[in-house]
Design a binder for these strands. Structure first.
Lengths: 245, 245
DNA sequence: CGTGCTTTTGAAAATCATCAAGTATAGTGG
DNA sequence: CCACTATACTTGATGATTTTCAAAAGCACG
C-alpha cells in the first residue's frame, strides 16, 4: 500500500541533472567545469531513495559509485549475528563507493527520504582519465574521510559513553554548519534514529538515551524533541568531547 | 638469502635510493617507471628511524609525506589525558601523511628500527602533476585504507575482546603473507609491544595478555615468545574473528 | 647480578550491556 | 477526527565483560 517502488516520473536524464544540482558545489562534481558538465550528466543516473531503503549492500559486486544529492544515508557493516557498526552518515555532497575491491565493503541505507546520483564505476573511471582535477578531488575526499575515520577510531577505542555522545553532537553541529540548510547556532537535527546513533558510537540505544537525558538534566543540551537538539553549554561539551572532564 | 640482505643501511642520497629500494614494488612508487625514478629519487630523503623515535607528531605542520621502506611504525592519536588510540601499523611500502589539512592528524613512531623516505609535500604535489599514474595509485591506497578503517571501526565498536585479538592475529598473518619477509605458514611475529596492541584494539594490556593466554590454553594459538605467535587452529580463529563463537 | 621494563596473573571495581517495562509518537484505519 | 497499533524512545534493575589496582614473573641490558 505504502509502496514507494513506483518509478518516479521525473529525473530527465541529462537535461538539467548536474547543472542544477544543489549538491554539486559540496561534492566532487565541483571539479568538473560548467562546460563539461554535460559529459558528467550523461553518466549520472538520479535515483530517489525512500527512507529505510538499502541502496548499497555489503558484499555485492561494486558496479556503481554514488553521490548523495539530498537527504541522509547511514553506512554500516554487519556481523553474522546481527551486530552492526554504522561507519558514517552521508549527507548531500557525499561520494560513496570508493574501493579498489570488486565488491562493496559496506551497506548504505537512507535514514530519511534521499536522492542519490548513480554512476557506472567503469564509465566514471574513464571519465576520470579526462578530468584529472576530479581524480585529485577524489583523493582529497578520501584523505579527509581517512582523517575522520581515525578520529572515529579514537572515539570507539578510547572514549567513554559521555564523551562519545558529546563528540557526536559537536560533529553534527559542525556538519550542519557546512550543510546546505543553515540552522540556528547550536541547533542541530538528528534525522537518524537512536539505534543508528548507538551503532555509530559503539553503544546501545539505552546508553545513548540515558546519556542524552543526563546531558539535558545537567543543562549541557536541550531536547525539544528526540530529533532536535540544542547545544546549551558549548564549552562544556567541547571539553567533554576532548576527554577533559 | 644473503643477496637480499645486501642493502646499505645508510642509503646514500639520490644515487640509488629509489632504483634499489626494496619497498618500491610494494609502495606507491611502483607507479613511477624505471626511467623516471631519478626524478623521484631527487625528492626522496631517506631517513633511518630508531625504535621508539616519533617522526610524525599530531598537530605539527604537515610539510612532508613519508614512505616506510623498512621496519614497522605505529600511527596513533592521543587524548589530552594520555589515552591513546593506535590507528594502524605501517610496514615497508606504507605511504603516510595523506591529508588535506595543513597539520598532521596523527603521530607516528617506529616500533622497531625503521627506514623511511621523506618527501616534501609541495614538491611531491608538483611531481604528481607529471605522473597521474601515481596519483591514481594514491587514490587506490587511500581507498584501501578507508576500507581497512571501516573494518577496524566494526572491531572497535562491536567486537568482544576475544574477537578483537583473533581478528588482529589473522590480520597480522595476512599482512605477513604479502610482506617482503615470507614467514612459515601460521607463524607471525609481533614487533609491537602489548601496550601498542592494546591501544590498537581499544583494550588494556592486561586484557590483551589474558585473552592471548586463554587462546593458548585452548590450543588456538602457540606462543613460543611474546613476540612470536603460531596460529594453531586457523578455522576456530577465523570463526571467532567473524563473530561466530 | 642487579635494575628497569615488559608481560603475565590475581582480586576488586566500574562502566556499560542486558533484560524488562513504561511512555511518547507517528502512522493507519475506522 | 479520534482511537488504535506499531514503533521509537526513555527509564529502571540487574549482571557481565572489561578496567583498574596490585604484584609477581620473565627478559634485556649495563
Amino acid at each position: 500500500m505504502t509502496s514507494m517502488r513506483a518509478r518516479p516520473s521525473f529525473a530527465p536524464r541529462g537535461a538539467e541533472s548536474c547543472t542544477s544540482c544543489g549538491a554539486r558545489r559540496a561534492s566532487v562534481c565541483i571539479a568538473i567545469e560548467e562546460k563539461d558538465l554535460e559529459r558528467l550528466a550523461a553518466l549520472a543516473v538520479p535515483l530517489p531513495v525512500p527512507a529505510g531503503r538499502t541502496f548499497i549492500t555489503e558484499g555485492d559486486p561494486a558496479e556503481h559509485f554514488f553521490n548523495v544529492t539530498h537527504g541522509t544515508a547511514k553506512l554500516f557493516k554487519l556481523l553474522p549475528d546481527g551486530r552492526r557498526q554504522v561507519t558514517g552518515f552521508a549527507s548531500a555532497g557525499t561520494f560513496l563507493g570508493l574501493a579498489v575491491s570488486s565488491s562493496y565493503a559496506f551497506s548504505a541505507e537512507a535514514v530519511e527520504p534521499a536522492q542519490v546520483c548513480r554512476f557506472s564505476r567503469t564509465r566514471l573511471r574513464h571519465l576520470l582519465d579526462d578530468f584529472p582535477a576530479m581524480e585529485r578531488r577524489l583523493l582529497d575526499v578520501a584523505s579527509n574521510e581517512l582523517v575522520a575515520a581515525q578520529e572515529q577510531m579514537l572515539l570507539l577505542g578510547r572514549k567513554t559513553a559521555r564523551e562519545r555522545v558529546a563528540s557526536f553532537l559537536l560533529a553534527r553541529e559542525a556538519c550542519a554548519a557546512v550543510g546546505p540548510v543553515p540552522s540556528a547556532r547550536g541547533h542541530i537535527s538528528l534525522p537518524m534514529a537512536r539505534t543508528d546513533i548507538a551503532d555509530y558510537l559503539g553503544l546501545t540505544v539505552e546508553t545513548v538515551s540515558r546519556t542524552m537525558t543526563r546531558l539535558r538534566i545537567e543543562r549541557l543540551i536541550d531536547m525539544p524533541s528526540p530529533t532536535e537538539i540544542i547545544l546549551r553549554n558549548h564549552d562544556a561539551l567541547t571539553a567533554l568531547a576532548a576527554g577533559l572532564s
